[in-house]
Design a binder for these strands. Structure first.
Lengths: 132, 132
DNA sequence: CTTGTAAATGTTATATTATTACATAGTGTT
DNA sequence: AACACTATGTAATAATATAACATTTACAAG
C-alpha cells in the first residue's frame, strides 16, 4: 500500500535505508551505508534528504541533526510534526495525537503572525530507561 | 532587576552580546564579535553558550543553529520553550503564552514516557513579510 | 520524435558547526 | 594549605552542510 513510485533512484535508496533503520539516522552514517550502492558524496545524500523532507517521507529531528522515516501514513507534508525523544537511549518516536496537532495547528497569539508549520520535540525518559 | 552576577567573564561577554543583538546569533558570528575582547577560539564560545543555555539565560533555536537571549524573565531553566520564526526575514521571538505552556507541560500520551522538557518552533510569515 | 525544461545526478572543493584532548588558572570552601 | 569545582587557553580535528559547475534523465508540449 506504500507509495513511493515518484522517488528517484538515490531518493529511494536513501529512503529505504532510513525506513528500515530502528532509529533516526545521521547524514554521514547514511552516506557510509549507501556507498556500496554508488552514492559517494555528501551532497548526493543531502539532496535526497532535502527532497524526502519536502515531500514528507522523512522528518528531521532538529535537536539531533538526524532523520527518521515518517511514521504517520497520513502525513504528506512535514508541516506539523511532534516527536518524543528519550534523553538516555536516544529513542525517538513520532507522536500522532489528533488533539495535540489540532491544538497546535490552530494556535495563534497576538503577534499578527500566521503559522503554517510547527515542529515540537518532547524530551524525557522512556519506559525502559526510567526503570533502570 | 536583571541578575547576572554569577556569570563568569566569558559568559558575561557572550551573554551581553547576544542580549543586545536584535535577533538570534550564530556561534561563529559571536566568535567574530568577541575576538576584540580576547575570546579567540570556538571552544571558548561553545563553553559559554552551553552554560548559558543550561541556566536558561539563552535558548538555542535548533532549526537555525542560533542562540537568542531569554525574553521571559521568569524562565530560569530552558525546559519549556516556544518560538515563532519568520521564514522570510528570519525574525525570531519567544512565545510566552501560559495556556500553551500549561498545555504542553501537562501533555502526556500512552507511550509511558514522562516528558520533562520540550521545545516548540512555529514557522510562518511575520506581519511585515506577509504584507510584502 | 525532437525540443524545451525541470528535476536529478556526479564530482570536487569548501564552508559551517561543534568537540576532543590536554594544560593552566581562578574561586570558594574546610 | 589542601581540596574540589568551575572556568579558561590553545591546538587540532571531527561532524554537519553547502557552493559551484558539468552532465544526464524524465517527461510534457509542440
Amino acid at each position: 500500500m506504500e507509495k513511493q513510485h515518484n522517488l528517484s533512484k538515490n531518493q529511494k535508496i536513501i529512503f529505504d535505508l532510513i525506513d528500515k533503520s530502528r532509529g533516526p539516522m545521521k547524514a554521514y552514517s547514511i552516506l557510509f551505508n549507501v556507498q556500496k550502492k554508488g552514492i559517494k558524496a555528501p551532497l548526493q545524500v543531502y539532496r535526497a534528504l532535502d527532497k524526502l523532507v519536502e515531500i514528507g517521507k522523512i522528518h528531521k529531528i532538529e535537536s539531533r541533526n538526524a532523520f527518521i522515516a515518517c511514521q504517520n501514513s497520513s502525513c504528506q507534508i512535514s508541516k506539523a510534526t511532534a516527536f518524543s525523544i528519550c534523553e538516555s537511549c536516544e529513542n525517538v518516536s513520532e507522536i500522532s495525537n489528533s488533539k495535540l496537532s489540532k491544538y497546535l495547528s490552530n494556535f495563534s497569539d497576538n503577534s499578527g503572525m500566521k503559522y503554517n508549520k510547527y515542529n515540537l520535540e518532547f524530551f524525557g525518559l522512556c519506559k525502559k530507561c526510567k526503570s533502570k
